[in-house]
């Protein structure tokens, strides 16, 4: 465990908790894309099936359980508990355009043609684009609450930190996984525009709003 990976995990965990607390405390999921959250629930479910097949560490197992459980809790709050506050009219990204191509790609480009491996690969590909409905929603409404911006920043920086982790591991452990690295790069690139707005606006105390 190197520092980049640990900070990445912490930032990922922070993002999940920020979102849960934001919705729970304000009793509202306004501005949050239910579609992105649904995709993240699918990502965690298909990736962490290895919870049933192998044990790595207490840390690994507990983080996986927390990620899966909190993603389901978030989806439940958006589509059931606080359904009335969900802004479905602005959450119009067509998720089949993400699910179908990533599913096909995971059958074509994977490390091993076995069910668990294909599901793992699918989760890596899907995660890289799962934030698009949320970013689409922000661009459509032209603004995001500051707390939502913090959530997006923590979620985006997590994969960026993982890129440094992979460079580290390649350097010192001679381990690398091209599928994870390429998907991680794609995922990070998708956040670049948002990172720029976050640094130039939100960190200076302004609300994130896009020029019309």
């Amino acid at each position: 465990m190197n520092i980049f990976r640990f900070l990445g995990d912490i930032s990922h965990l922070s993002a999940i908790i920020i979102l849960l607390l934001k919705i729970w405390k304000s009793r509202s999921c306004a501005g949050i894309s239910g579609k992105s959250q649904l995709l993240f629930a699918i990502v965690f479910t298909t990736r962490y099936l290895d919870l049933f097949t192998n044990f790595i560490s207490f840390y690994n197992t507990s983080m996986k359980v927390v990620y899966v459980a909190s993603s389901y809790a978030t989806v439940w709050m958006i589509y059931s508990k606080f359904k009335a506050t969900y802004d479905g009219n602005h959450d119009t990204f067509r998720v089949e355009f993400l699910i179908v191509p990533t599913a096909i790609l995971s059958f074509l480009v994977n490390h091993d043609f076995t069910p668990l491996e294909i599901l793992w690969t699918f989760s890596i590909y899907l995660e890289s684009v799962a934030i698009l409905p949320q970013l689409f929603m922000v661009s459509k409404t032209g603004e995001a609450e500051t707390i939502t911006s913090h959530y997006l920043f923590a979620l985006g920086i997590y994969r960026t930190l993982y890129l440094f982790n992979w460079i580290w591991r390649y350097q010192f452990e001679e381990f690398f996984d091209l599928i994870a690295i390429v998907a991680g790069l794609v995922q990070t690139v998708l956040y670049c525009d948002f990172f720029y707005l976050y640094i130039t606006k939100v960190l200076k105390g302004k609300k994130l709003s896009l020029p019309a």
């Binding site: 990976r5 995990d9 990922h12 990736r47 290895d50 192998n54 790595i56 560490s57 690994n60 983080m63 996986k64 990620y67 490390h111 491996e117 793992w120 890596i124 993982y162 982790n165 992979w166 591991r169 001679e174 381990f175 690398f176 996984d177 091209l178 994870a180």
Partner: peptide, 10 residues
């Protein structure tokens, strides 16, 4: 190339 993820990463 050796696998790293799915084994010990999140």
């Amino acid at each position: 190339c050796k696998r790293i993820m799915g084994k010990d990463e999140l």
